[in-house]
């Protein structure tokens, strides 16, 4: 039994295809979704979305957002979805050092800084992961 995986960004529908197994990069780690999973709404982190399909594994870097699972349809809403091969490790390192240098002297600023760091780290991890 296959599940349908739909990745939507505000600019276009990035992916709409069948997969046998989907790994979602949740905010606190990976979550595997197989056919017949109970309905779920979750918050995504910054990391790789992996689709196991008949033709092999497809990997995409997901830039936060939400995932919704219902009736074997996995909808991923994110601001950006970049194919794993196209992630720029150098740019990710640059944004990480920028994020590390951000001020954190009020709770709000610290929250913003932490989000930026998480994002840069996720991107870096995705860039270094074997694909």
């Amino acid at each position: 039994m296959a599940i349908r995986c739909v990745v939507v960004t505000p600019e276009r529908t990035e992916i709409d295809r069948e997969a046998s197994y989907v790994t979602l990069p949740m905010y606190d780690g990976e979550l595997g979704v197989a056919a017949g999973r109970a309905p779920l709404i979750g918050r995504l982190g910054y990391g790789l979305l992996k689709l196991q399909t008949e033709t092999g594994t497809q990997q995409l870097f997901i830039d936060g957002g939400f995932a919704q699972v219902e009736n074997d349809v996995v909808s991923v809403l994110t601001s950006r979805a970049i194919p794993a091969e196209q992630i720029d490790a150098a740019a990710a390192e640059r944004s990480l050092s920028e994020a590390l240098a951000m001020p954190g002297n009020t709770p709000e600023l610290r929250y913003i800084r932490d989000a930026a760091q998480l994002r840069a780290r996720g991107q870096l991890r995705a860039a270094r992961a074997p694909h």
Binding site: M26, Y27, D28, L31, A38, P39, L40, I41, G42, R43, G64, G65, F66, E70
Partner: peptide, 17 residues
């Protein structure tokens, strides 16, 4: 009417929405 599992919680998802 479908019962959803919220991950981590409805409030946290809302914070992001």
């Amino acid at each position: 009417t479908v019962d959803y599992e919220f991950h981590p919680s409805a409030v946290s998802v809302l914070e992001e929405v």
